[in-house]
Design a protein around this nucleic acid. Sequence first.
DNA 1: AATTCATACATCGAATGTCGATGGGAGACT
DNA 2: AGTCTCCCATCGACATTCGATGTATGAATT
Lengths: 113, 113
Amino acid sequence: MSRSMDLLQGTLDLLILKTLTWGPGHGYAVARWIEQLTGSTLQIGEGSLYPALHRLEERGWVKSEWHLSEHNRRAKFYALTPKGRQQLRAEQAAWTQFVTAVAKVLDATSLPA
Amino acid sequence: MSRSMDLLQGTLDLLILKTLTWGPGHGYAVARWIEQLTGSTLQIGEGSLYPALHRLEERGWVKSEWHLSEHNRRAKFYALTPKGRQQLRAEQAAWTQFVTAVAKVLDATSLPA
DNA sequence: AATTCATACATCGAATGTCGATGGGAGACT
DNA sequence: AGTCTCCCATCGACATTCGATGTATGAATT
C-alpha cells in the first residue's frame, strides 16, 4: 500500500543540521537522537542517512573526522561548519514559512475571495 | 543553486484534497485558491498540479466531470469522493503528527538522555 | 573459545514526486 | 486580426527516500 509515513523530502537535512548544533556526532548517533526525541515517530533509515550526511559534507555544511565512539569503536564524527549554521538558519526559516502556509490552507473555512 | 522552496513531497495531495472540501473546482482554480490563501508562498506549477489531480482520481479520492467554468470555458471539475474525505482525514492527521515531531527536534535544547 | 548482539560504515536499485519547459485551444476584449 | 487570460496536458530531468544487503569490530554471553 505505498508508503505510509516517509520523511518529507528535504526535511532530513534540516533535522540532521539541527541535531549537530548540540555537538558533533556520528551518523548512528544522529539517527538515534532524532528517533528518541520524536518517540520513534521519525525513523531514519541508514539508506537515507548516509547519503544525506555525504551530501551535507559535499556542500560544506558539515565536516567529518574519524574518532572513537563512546563504545570504543571507529566512527566518523560530523560537525557543523559556519556555513552549515547559516544553512540551518535558512532552512529553519523556510520550514516555518512552509508550515505556516500549509496551515493557512488547512485552517481556512471558506473560499478565498 | 538548486531549488529554494519546492513543495514538500506528499503535501500537494493534502492541499488539493483540502481545497476541494469547499466545493468542486477545476485544476486552475485549485491552484489559484492555494496561492491566494498563502499569499503566493505556495505556488503550484501546472506540471505538478495535473499529474497530482490524475493521481488522486486514479486512486478514487476525487472524481471529475466536464462543465463550463465561470468564464464560460470548458473545464474539468474535480469533486471529493467519500474515500477522498477519509483520505484527507488520514493525511491531515499524519501531517500534524509529522510537524509535531519535527518541532520536537527543532525546539529541543539539549541532547536526549 | 565460539557465538551473538549492538554498533557503525556504506552502496545499490527501485520508486515516487516535483519542476520547468512546452504545446494546444477556446472565450473575451481591443 | 491580434492578444490576453484561462484551462488542459505531457515530457524529460532531477533529487531524494527507502528497503535490502554487505562489511567489520568491540563487548557480552555461553
